[in-house]
């Protein structure tokens, strides 16, 4: 990662300044860490009984069960959201106007909704409408609907970013609309938007933690139950945070690499990527990766 914007080599004075700055910054960082450790110690957070539960297999099994529930919900929601999102994206580009309108309504409505409210609705509202399911499905449906609306926009952006010549060429070859879509447009669009799609899936994984609000026993809920039992909220919740950070960081690195490689490829290839288009991708990602 080459972050620095200082294009020119630093002179002797600049290097000295950076060196002094580094020392001061390092001292400050170490001071913060030292204060944190002292706080932990003063408040008895290093006491053995706070940490021991996390070393017991029976307790870890309780957490792993929660982790399994998290992944179970995330996996199902990912698959459903990708499929529904793809269909909605195609519907938004359909040639029949009412289909387009419906798809637009779907996207605008669910994208503008707080996921919290949506999951709450699945839990307390759906049964009232005669849909009675396991609490697992309420979470999965809420996550799927919300993310499908966002993924639909990502897919659509990908399709629209393709050169018109692609579909023209496909129809010149005698392909029908759906053939052109399936064989030419969609594969390219998906590949191009893959980084954005992955970062949205990372978001979805994070959002499964909203299961706590409907008392689905995912990782965070189990950590809360365990923390309340052992009185060690710091360790329990930190454990959950560390899990999410590790997995999501790995996935984000994967997405960034993918993006970098694609940028190289498109630069080398025939498709022009202008600065503005890159920004559009940044925008789409920023939007999709925060919810």
């Amino acid at each position: 990662m080459n972050d620095t914007i200082l294009a020119d080599e630093l002179g002797p004075r600049g290097r000295r300044r950076v060196f002094i700055g580094s020392i001061i910054a390092s001292i400050l960082v170490l001071a913060v860490i030292a204060i944190a450790i002292k706080r932990f110690n003063d408040n008895g957070q290093f006491a053995e009984e706070k940490w021991r539960p996390l070393t017991q297999w029976s307790v870890l099994k309780f957490y792993l069960g929660g982790l399994g529930n998290t992944l179970k919900a995330a996996g199902a929601a990912m698959v459903i959201a990708l499929i529904v999102g793809g269909l909605v994206a195609l519907a938004r580009l359909a040639r029949t106007a009412p289909v387009r309108w419906l798809a637009t309504l779907y996207v605008e409505f669910f994208r503008g909704m707080a996921l919290y409210l949506l999951i709450l609705f699945c839990w307390l509202g759906l049964p009232r409408l005669g849909v009675r399911l396991d609490v697992y499905w309420y979470l999965v449906i809420g996550l799927s609907v919300y993310n499908s609306a966002i993924l639909a926009e990502v897919f659509r952006a990908g399709i629209l970013s393709l050169d018109r010549g692609q579909s023209d060429a496909a129809s010149a070859l005698g392909m029908r609309y759906w053939q052109a879509m399936g064989l030419v447009i969609v594969p390219q669009a998906v590949r191009r938007m893959l980084p954005a799609i992955i970062s949205q899936l990372v978001t979805l994984l994070k959002d499964t933690s909203l299961g706590v609000l409907i008392f689905y026993e995912e990782l965070l809920r189990r950590a809360r139950l365990s923390a309340e039992f052992f009185h060690n909220p710091v360790m329990s919740v930190a454990l959950v945070a560390i899990f999410y950070i590790t997995v999501n960081y790995a996935l984000s690195v994967f997405a960034t690499r993918l993006e970098a490689r694609q940028r190289r490829r498109y630069k080398a290839g025939s498709i022009k990527v202008t600065g503005l288009e890159q920004l559009a991708v940044v925008g789409a990602q920023a939007e999709s990766s925060i919810t």
């Binding site: 706080r39 499964t208 809360r224 710091v234 919740v237 945070a241 999410y244 950070i245 999501n248």
Partner: peptide, 24 residues
Amino acid sequence: VNTVRNTPLAVLMVLFFFALPDVG
């Protein structure tokens, strides 16, 4: 950026409100 962005908001909420009082 890498820690905060990759942690679910719900986890951050619970951590800050219910856990951090334990360290003052």
